[in-house]
Design a protein around this nucleic acid. Structure first.
Lengths: 191, 191
DNA sequence: CACCGTAGCGGAGGCTCCCTCCGCGTAGGC
DNA sequence: GCCTACGCGGAGGGAGCCTCCGCTACGGTG
């Protein structure tokens, strides 16, 4: 399975790494619709080189995300330190939201892949988030503080949704605060 | 105040109306990022004509929306027929969601204007929705079925958010159902 | 009803971005 | 050190955004 990829020439690997790194900076600054030509220019390669390594925008974004899965792991560690079970779930979802919000426009792309069963690169990133969320949700359910019927996928979807809201300028940030509050009351069990 | 607009020539008025109508169709089909050049072509006018009447995409969209405020009024009538107070608020928010979802991409634009105090065209459309939502929310509060602290603007923001989620393909629709359910539990008062 | 000033029109054109294709240079196996 | 095919750069066609300018024809006036 891993043998499908044949060895690459050294310059190809170098260029690929360079492109991902430059693209990461550009996407962080300008969102996922950033100009790919500008990325290629900034990396000092021709557009053909970029498109050979990443046939479409999505595959480039997926590679950026793949290299950041340790960020998610760190977030899990951080959230796990919260003692109160209900609050811990809140904290975790905040981390998911932050992780998604790091790249403007990513939220929409991810939601589209939330239901992917085939192992598309973006689908895998979603699986990962859903699985981690499931852990926190299960703990909350055991403690009786999570409303039955709420699924981990729903919660990740909500986090993406709030991340989207927050990405829409200063007004969006305020709206996101309100939405987050309502959602929290919505997924918690009535006491 | 209304005298700021001087009388227009007949052909100008005709072209303007035609452009709005054609644009409405295009935006409904392709979302708010639809090609303005295509709109002009389809209306049989040059791009210059379109840009003279509507200096930017947003002003064109605002005009489309302005002409649809009666749709919102009809939605209010429809929602008002629901007998149960809590359910009536749900129904109304569903109508708001539907209204926003009619044009793919509109949700983001509207959220950006939710906090507008200045009477920008888009801001006015928001004011209208917030005001109507306030009526339904007030009724729910009086009946003790709405959780205190929830504002009408929060609710409109949530409706826009769910509309956005639902616009993201088939997976999005399922996510939207889940989110809507959580939100409903979140803005209702604990019994 | 003919005339004329100007409001308003069309479209050419400059810019950016997307993506493809092809001839050439060079990395690296032998 | 040689040779081959991998991977590179960049030209180029297509689309969209928006501006500017010369001409058309609308409609007020005598």
């Amino acid at each position: 399975m891993a043998s499908t990829e044949r060895p690459r020439r050294a310059d190809a690997r170098r260029n690929r790494d360079l492109l991902v790194e430059v693209a990461r900076r550009h996407v962080r600054r300008h969102g996922i619709t950033t100009s790919l030509e500008a990325v290629a220019r900034d990396a000092g390669v021709g557009p053909g080189t970029l498109y050979r390594h990443f046939p479409d925008r999505e595959s480039l974004l997926a590679e950026i995300l793949r290299r950041e899965s340790d960020d998610l792991a760190a977030a899990r560690e951080r959230a796990a330190r919260t003692i109160d079970v209900a609050e811990r779930l809140d904290t975790w979802l905040g981390e998911v939201e932050r992780h998604i919000a790091a790249y403007r426009g990513l939220s929409g792309l991810l939601v589209g892949s939330l239901g992917d069963t085939a192992p598309t690169p973006l689908g895998l990133a979603c699986q990962e988030m859903i699985a981690m969320t499931e852990e926190f949700l299960a703990a909350a359910r055991r403690a009786g503080v999570a409303r039955p019927g709420v699924t981990a996928r729903d919660l990740v979807g909500c986090a993406a949704m709030v991340a989207w809201l927050g990405s829409l300028g200063p007004g969006g940030t305020r709206q996101a605060d309100g939405a987050r509050d309502i959602l929290r009351h919505g997924y918690r069990a009535a006491p």
